[in-house]
Write a protein that binds this DNA or RNA. Structure first.
Lengths: 125, 125
DNA sequence: CTACTACTTCGACAAGCATCTAAACAGGAG
DNA sequence: CTCCTGTTTAGATGCTTGTCGAAGTAGTAG
């Protein structure tokens, strides 16, 4: 749907984001800026085999199945996860590129530059 | 207000987030999940000297001053920036710890683990 | 075929949020 | 002191979104 494989954007404190990039990233961040979706993403990512069945996810919350399905759709639309039906169950998997993109945005800044932040050090990923 | 200096949370795909940690992180992510605030943060962080005056920020948008002030307050409440009045103008500065916390959450995953994600490699920061 | 389970879509409602205008507050200049 | 500029607060409004119940779709089992 959206272009999920854009290289995009330097670290947030490196150079000002363009209006377009900011809007693009905000979509992805909005998807993650929810406790339930954050936990869903974490559960899927840390699940054995790298993928989790919806049934497992639903049981972990005090929410109805439609609500979980809605949150999964938001994550999927944002390009953060991908779902696949295998027989009876639907399995979701994290899209690592998308997560890495967010990680790169909040780049490793040098924490200890007490007043002279002119020379940042970027860790080459 | 909130505890901003918590070490908190392994990478999102490392282990499932606790309900508490997820809620805590969601607050910070909600603050960033907006195009305007994303650009504000980026402008502040990449500004010469590491800090930016509100007047500079206001001019860069088609929004009224109160709206910008509101967004800055959201970022400040989330512990992402800090503001200080010096004479006539107010200067804002990024809090690197907070940004790094987000960066650590979306940790560098090994992209190419095709089915055996048991041993992830963490880059020691 | 019917019955059952797993998941998604639909429609609705309450809460939250981005934005505005108007007004208040802080500091510098005349 | 008064006036002006920069910034924040207060209140109001319209859009977005998290949640639910009910209904729809997909696949398995008998």
């Amino acid at each position: 749907m959206a272009a999920t494989t854009t290289p995009c954007c330097a670290p947030i404190a490196r150079e000002p984001l363009s209006e377009t990039d900011a809007a693009d990233l905000a979509v992805m961040l909005k998807a993650v800026a929810d406790p339930v979706r954050l936990r869903l993403l974490s559960m899927i990512g840390s699940h054995a085999g790298g993928e989790a069945c919806v049934c497992d996810l639903t049981d972990a919350f005090d929410l109805t199945a439609p609500t979980i399905s809605h949150h999964l759709k938001v994550l999927r639309t944002a390009g953060l996860i991908d779902g696949e039906r295998r027989g009876t169950w639907v399995y979701y998997r994290i899209i690592p590129e998308a997560v890495n993109k967010l990680g790169a945005l909040f780049a490793p800044l040098t924490e200890s530059s007490p007043g002279r932040p002119g020379d940042l050090e970027l860790l080459p990923v």
